[in-house]
Design a binder for these strands. Structure first.
Length: 464
RNA sequence: UCCCCGAUAGCUCAAUGGUAGAGCAACCGGCUGUUAACCGGUUUGUUGUAGGUUCGAGUCCUACUCGGGGAGCCA
């Protein structure tokens, strides 16, 4: 007897095999012909396998006729070709072992569709829904492709710290990490809380980005990437933001911004082409039930080049668009969502890479262009989700970097080790950050980022 | 954090200021190699919380909580 997954048992190649299947019942249909149909799912595929349970089974009356959605069972039996439409194979059960019942009157998941809002309230059970199973399988495929892509391109997988002593990464509000007794914290002479008495002897926070550490590693090892959780204590209440999310940050020495854009484009194309190749059944589900353009959008991205244009060119297009924007367009202003959406959804209708942004609206570490007005930043914008990637060529010249820090009111004392990278063997280098959840959101067509991560953390919500 | 919308049965939603209802689910029965099965019947409520207006509030007013859409911040 061979232990098979539901996905394997659905393959015609499995016909004739003596198998063990284990999973959760989705539904039961009884036939007065003297048997019942059980739909079994184990998470390995969107589709269920149909189990034929004959009334002659010893526990048919006592147990099988009481199986409902959510019950867990083991089935021993034989895979056979199905005589009816709807599935290629089915499993004729020789034995059905019930592990756990699920009180049908209380079990919250029904056979019929639920709203995403309701499923979010039962985050511990929603992986059993079709939508969530499909989301998590696509998420898994994307994670795998990320590692494969970088492996094949010579990038070293490195780990940046999750607890950071740098309070000036500049990417947003941070969560403080402390082991101080908050009912009686140590205080200095000024009456302020004395974090020098804290666990690490200083203030520490959850990381908002591994970029600065990745730069140190890239400036030693060449091409590296991080892939880990990041945290933002922003009070963001949108369908595209999480307080805890996963970010992929490649960083490469001797990479120009052009190299960086080439990398980002090849990277995204690889991720989405793998999803199309390996998640066909799940993608068809998203197309049918979630977003009609789910598959065609990914196909378009894989097949056609991204449109690259400078910030200045983008401003020109927006000014000439004759669109009524809520926020006025002018060179020097940061682009608003409506502007980005216009470019990617209406004007070009494809992914857009914008580069060379005004120095005033971008971070200090981005390399200053010779025009003195713009920096080597780039954003990859996609329809519906907006910014999928943000990156830049980093400022490798010590004097320029120090000047840019001063310009933005940053204290160089907090960046000693980061400036060292420019003092000793500095090299041009570039990198970017990709939000995993936004990537999954884009690939699946899911409307809310809270529904592409198993247990979402958002302001006021850490229930599970 | 700001603007707009919402909260009624387990789920999705109805209900002129005047006796709270339907579909689905659940339960019982029927039928059937069925497959979001189908047919008949039964059960289900402190109308988000706390106040207020009124003879009377699911409905009007105020505050709060939670959820959704949009914006800002960004990935």
């Amino acid at each position: 007897m061979e232990k098979l997954s539901v996905a394997q048992a659905r393959q015609v190649e499995s016909v004739g095999k003596d198998v063990l299947l284990q999973g959760w019942v989705r539904t039961r249909r009884d036939s007065k012909g003297g048997f019942s149909f059980l739909e079994l799912n184990d998470g390995t595929s969107l589709a269920n396998v149909q189990i034929i349970a004959e009334a002659t089974l010893p526990n048919y009356q006592a147990e099988i006729l009481h199986l409902t959605a959510g019950c867990s069972i083991s089935v021993e039996g034989t895979v056979q070709a199905s005589p009816a439409k709807g599935q290629a194979t089915e499993v004729r059960a020789r034995r059905v072992l019930v592990h756990g019942l699920a009180d049908a009157a209380r079990y919250p998941l029904q056979k019929k569709g639920h709203t995403m809002e309701f499923l979010r309230e039962i985050a511990h059970l929603r992986p059993r829904s079709n939508t969530f199973g499909a989301v998590l399988r696509v998420r898994h495929q994307i994670c795998r492709s990320i590692h494969e892509f970088f492996w094949e391109n010579g990038f070293l997988y490195v780990q940046a710290p999750i607890i950071t002593g740098s309070d000036c990464e500049g990417a947003g509000q941070m969560f403080r990490v402390t082991s101080l007794d908050y009912s009686k914290p140590p205080r200095n002479e000024a009456g302020e809380i004395d974090f020098s008495k804290d666990f690490f002897g200083k203030s520490t926070y959850l990381t908002v980005s591994g970029q600065l550490e990745a730069e140190a590693l890239a400036c030693s090892l060449g091409k590296v990437y991080t892939f880990g959780p990041t945290f933002r204590a922003e009070n963001s209440n949108t369908s595209r933001h999480l307080a805890e999310f996963w970010m992929i940050e490649p960083e490469a020495a001797f990479y120009t911004l052009e190299d960086n854009m080439d990398l980002a484009e090849a990277f995204l194309k690889r991720l989405f082409s793998d999803v199309l190749k390996h998640c066909g059944e799940d993608m068809q589900f998203f197309k049918d039930r979630i977003e009609p353009t789910a598959i065609s959008t990914l196909e378009g991205i894989v097949q056609s080049p991204f449109r690259r244009l400078s910030y200045t060119e983008a401003i020109e297009i927006l000014l000439q668009s004759k669109q009524a924007f809520e926020f006025p367009v002018a060179w020097g202003v940061d682009l608003q969502s409506e502007h980005e959406r216009y470019l990617t959804e209406k004007h070009f209708q494809c992914p857009v890479i914008l580069y060379d942004y005004p120095r005033q609206i971008k971070a200090f570490y981005m390399r200053l262009n010779d025009d003195g007005k713009t920096v080597r930043a780039m954003d990859v914008l996609v329809p519906r989700v907006g910014e999928l990637i943000g990156g830049s060529q980093r400022e490798e010249r010590l004097d320029v970097l120090e000047q840019r820090m001063a310009e933005q009111g940053l204290d160089p004392a907090g960046y000693g080790w980061y400036l060292d990278l420019r003092r000793y063997g500095t090299v041009p280098h570039s990198g970017f950050g990709l939000g995993l959840e936004r990537t999954v959101q884009f690939a699946t067509g899911m409307g809310n980022i809270r529904d592409v991560i198993p247990f979402p953390r958002t302001p006021g919500n850490a229930e599970f």
